[in-house]
Simulated scan of single mutants.
Amino acid sequence: MTEESELLTGDWLGTYYYPRTLEPVAFEASLIEFDGILTGTTSEVFPLPSHGERKIQGHLDGERSGDAVRFSKVYVGASGPHRREIFYAGTIWDRSTRIEGTWTLANSWSGVFKMTRIRQKQASFRRRLFEEIKA
């Protein structure tokens, strides 16, 4: 069983990379791990070539087994190519503070992703800063 301090529950910053010439996309994730089951949400600003940028949310479901994670992401309310489920498989590193692996869009593209845990102080600072910016 995973020690409490090594659970993946918390806030994460990440980047996923395309296999082609498209720019990498940064994302934020909030994960909850309970008894090997992972769930969570993502938020990212996706570049649209002719339309600028669009913020999209995603929902994650998956599992953890030791240092391995597998989960899928489905964008909420998405249209077009963003309606398809994306599969992730990765390895947990550095006492559960980093995840690296690959993502796959079935019968289509795949690439690399990396995630780093946000320390609690950083997370509360970011939330406070975000609230000040919104006001």
Rank of each mutant, 00 (worst) to 15 (best):
M1K: 08
M1Y: 05
E3S: 13
E4S: 11
E4I: 02
E4V: 03
L7S: 13
L8D: 12
L8G: 08
L8P: 10
L8H: 09
T9N: 08
G10C: 10
G10D: 07
W12K: 02
W12V: 00
L13V: 06
L13G: 05
G14P: 09
G14R: 06
G14D: 01
G14T: 04
G14A: 02
G14M: 06
Y18T: 00
P19V: 01
R20H: 08
R20Y: 07
T21R: 05
L22Q: 14
P24N: 07
P24L: 09
V25G: 01
A26Q: 15
A26C: 03
F27E: 02
F27H: 06
A29G: 05
L31M: 14
I32H: 03
I32N: 09
I32S: 05
E33P: 08
D35Y: 03
D35N: 15
D35A: 12
I37K: 10
I37Q: 12
L38V: 08
L38N: 06
T39S: 15
G40E: 02
G40Q: 03
G40R: 04
T41I: 05
T42I: 10
F46V: 06
F46Y: 15
F46A: 00
P47Q: 04
P47V: 03
P49D: 07
P49I: 09
H51M: 11
E53A: 11
K55T: 11
K55L: 06
I56M: 15
Q57V: 04
Q57G: 07
Q57K: 12
G58Q: 12
L60I: 15
L60T: 03
G62C: 06
E63H: 08
R64M: 01
S65M: 11
G66H: 03
G66W: 10
V69H: 05
S72G: 10
K73F: 00
V74I: 12
G77E: 08
G77Q: 08
A78H: 02
A78E: 09
A78D: 02
A78S: 11
G80F: 11
H82W: 15
H82D: 11
H82T: 01
R83H: 01
R83L: 09
F87I: 06
G90W: 06
G90H: 05
T91P: 01
I92D: 08
I92P: 02
W93E: 13
R95E: 15
S96Y: 14
S96K: 10
S96H: 12
R98N: 03
R98I: 01
I99L: 05
I99D: 06
E100G: 00
E100C: 03
T102V: 08
T102I: 04
T102K: 12
T102Q: 14
T102L: 07
L105H: 08
A106V: 09
N107Q: 14
S108W: 07
S108K: 13
S110C: 13
G111M: 05
G111S: 11
V112N: 04
V112L: 10
V112R: 15
V112C: 00
V112P: 00
F113A: 04
K114L: 10
T116W: 07
T116R: 12
T116N: 11
R117F: 08
K121A: 13
K121F: 06
A123E: 11
A123S: 15
F125Q: 10
R126D: 06
R128G: 12
R128N: 13
R128H: 14
R128M: 14
L129G: 00
L129A: 14
F130W: 05
E131L: 10
E132A: 14
